[in-house]
Amino acid sequence: MSRLVFKRFVMLVPLLIGVSLFAFLLISTAPGDPVAALINPVDSSIDVTALEARRQALGLRDSLPVRYARWVGQLLTGNLGRSYATGRPVLGEMLNRVGATAQLAFMAVAVGLVIGVLAGAASALKRGTWVDTGITLLGFLVVATPPFFLGLALIFLLSLQLNLFPTGGMLTLGSGGGLGDRLSHLVMPAVVLALPFITEVTRYTRGGLIDVLKQDFIRTARGKGLRPRRVVMVHALRNALMPLVTITALALPTLLGGAIITETVFQWPGLGTLTIDAVHQRDYPVILAVTLFSALTVIAANLLADIAYSVVDPRVRYEP
């Protein structure tokens, strides 16, 4: 196990260099620059020479290799630099947002797993009945609906009509934002974010369970006279859920990278809106930092999946 972790760490170095270099080249070749992005062109009373001086001061007039080397040099000392748009340290700007995104992501995973497994199991056990068909259709409907529409529909229904949940933001303005207040703000965005994931979990659970229920050991278990409920819950479901470890781990980086649309609709200040703002503002240091963060979460999530898999399935061993 420790060998696996060590190997992954060694892989990390070339991977991060590759990702950062690629991201750096990509955004540097995009048209426009952070200074141009700060300017509202309708107001022409500004001093254009100041803009050029700012480019110089930010080092934007240096060659690409020099800029990349400078950025890597900073990074090696643990400094992610300052945002071009706000002038504040990038690390702080990111930490501001990571918490919000993490809350949303983990809530979405939890909701997705609970509802998905229940729906998938119901679908498999009532296979071919209207329950199965209904769950399947609902799943497709959910996957086919754009999240911004779902988000607005939920706001309309649950906030405006039924007054159950707040319309957006992380807390009630002017309140201290207690636990209950924060949780109630979290419900709708988490559900919208979780919906496609719920469907995925449902399909995997249904397929896995149907497969497992056909196998010999289930017949043996039934033959021993175990209660049907125990056969399903303990023997079958446990085996059917193994693929969920993988899909959950693979879903995590996407969720942690920030959900731009969900965040925008619900005014949720996560990494997604930070990223999209940074792209619009050509805020290179922020874009690079977010990209590195995403790369790290992908690697960490994969590692997590491998480790978790070997835990839930003792047959899996990682040997050289």
Binding site: A30, P31, G32, A36, A37, P41, V42, S44, R282
Partner: peptide, 22 residues
Amino acid sequence: DFATLNADAAAGNFDLLLLGNQ
């Protein structure tokens, strides 16, 4: 987006440009 347009406008990369003055 503005970042692209501002840079391209300054570089003269347009025939017609829809933009206001205030």
